[in-house]
Simulated assay, not measured.
Amino acid sequence: MSEQAVFQVLLHEWQECEVQASLVRKIVFIDEQGVSLEEEMDGRDDQCVHAVAWSGNTAVGTGRLLPEGSIGRMAVLREYRGRKVGSLLLTALVESARSKGYAQVYLAAQEHALPFYLRHGFIPEGERFFEAGIAHVMMRRHLSGTKTQAPAAKE
């Protein structure tokens, strides 16, 4: 059995996954990366579709899709990194955007994660910038077979 089969990724509304997704994001962004709670919790979670990766009853990763087509808050617990959890999350969010008819999705990738997003068809745009003290690059992926275009906006 492949390691991917161990994880299940489900799409949730914020009210269904707030406790679990918040815990993953706190561990990754606040505890590991030193992002402030104010920067991490931007008040937009209730507008998003959330992908949560589960190992049994434990949330091990999360990400979200904002209404304007921005993917963000991608976080995987350290002990589950390198096991395709991020790929499963990203794929679920891209497919959600495609099902909504978006022509493209975009994200602010942490610089160290550029190779990951490149492998998933995202193209860098613009110069490096800092958000929460961490170097980022805007990236975009055009989706085929869609009718509408999500407006371009920065998360």
Results as ranks from 00 to 15, higher is better:
residue 118 L to W: 01
residue 110 Q to M: 04
residue 83 R to L: 14
residue 69 G to E: 03
residue 84 K to Q: 15
residue 124 P to W: 00
residue 117 Y to T: 01
residue 87 S to L: 10
residue 91 T to L: 12
residue 70 S to V: 07
residue 114 L to T: 11
residue 98 R to L: 05
residue 95 E to S: 10
residue 82 G to N: 01
residue 99 S to Q: 14
residue 88 L to A: 11
residue 69 G to V: 03
residue 120 H to E: 09
residue 75 A to N: 02
residue 68 E to M: 02
residue 77 L to V: 06
residue 89 L to K: 12
residue 117 Y to A: 07
residue 93 L to Y: 08
residue 76 V to G: 07
residue 73 R to H: 10
residue 92 A to Q: 11
residue 119 R to Y: 01
residue 68 E to Q: 12
residue 83 R to N: 04
residue 98 R to M: 04
residue 64 R to K: 09
residue 114 L to F: 02
residue 70 S to R: 10
residue 111 E to A: 13
residue 108 A to P: 00
residue 97 A to S: 10
residue 68 E to H: 15
residue 86 G to F: 07
residue 106 Y to I: 07
residue 64 R to F: 06
residue 121 G to D: 11
residue 94 V to F: 10
residue 67 P to Y: 02
residue 105 V to R: 14
residue 84 K to Y: 07
residue 92 A to G: 07
residue 65 L to V: 00
residue 101 G to C: 06
residue 92 A to E: 10
residue 110 Q to K: 05
residue 102 Y to W: 13
residue 113 A to S: 14
residue 90 L to A: 12
residue 75 A to E: 01
residue 85 V to S: 13
residue 121 G to L: 11
residue 105 V to S: 13
residue 71 I to C: 06
residue 81 R to Q: 14
residue 114 L to S: 02
residue 64 R to P: 06
residue 114 L to N: 06
residue 72 G to S: 01
residue 99 S to N: 13
residue 115 P to H: 05
residue 87 S to G: 15
residue 72 G to N: 03
residue 93 L to D: 12
residue 96 S to K: 15
residue 74 M to I: 13
residue 81 R to N: 05
residue 105 V to K: 12
residue 107 L to S: 06
residue 109 A to F: 02
residue 71 I to A: 00
residue 69 G to I: 02
residue 120 H to T: 01
residue 79 E to D: 15
residue 106 Y to W: 10
residue 74 M to W: 03
residue 92 A to K: 14
residue 102 Y to H: 14
residue 107 L to Q: 03
residue 86 G to L: 07
residue 103 A to C: 12
residue 117 Y to F: 15
residue 65 L to N: 08
residue 122 F to A: 09
residue 104 Q to V: 00
residue 100 K to C: 01
residue 107 L to M: 13
residue 66 L to M: 13
residue 116 F to A: 11
residue 103 A to Y: 04
residue 101 G to K: 04
residue 85 V to K: 13
residue 114 L to W: 05
residue 96 S to M: 08
residue 75 A to G: 05
residue 109 A to C: 12
residue 69 G to F: 05
residue 81 R to C: 03
residue 119 R to N: 15
residue 109 A to E: 07
residue 75 A to M: 03
residue 83 R to V: 00
residue 110 Q to P: 11
residue 88 L to I: 06
residue 108 A to F: 01
residue 85 V to N: 11
residue 90 L to H: 12
residue 77 L to E: 04
residue 116 F to P: 14
residue 118 L to K: 11
residue 66 L to T: 06
residue 110 Q to N: 03
residue 86 G to Q: 11
residue 64 R to T: 03
residue 107 L to P: 11
residue 75 A to L: 04
residue 121 G to T: 08
residue 85 V to Y: 09
residue 95 E to R: 14
residue 110 Q to D: 07
residue 106 Y to R: 15
residue 88 L to K: 13
residue 91 T to F: 06
residue 77 L to K: 06
residue 106 Y to H: 15
residue 122 F to G: 08
residue 115 P to D: 08
residue 84 K to L: 07
residue 96 S to W: 02
residue 74 M to C: 14
residue 84 K to E: 13
residue 98 R to A: 12
residue 65 L to I: 04
residue 113 A to G: 09
residue 100 K to L: 12
residue 79 E to S: 15
residue 104 Q to N: 06
residue 72 G to L: 03
residue 124 P to H: 00
residue 87 S to C: 08
residue 118 L to H: 11
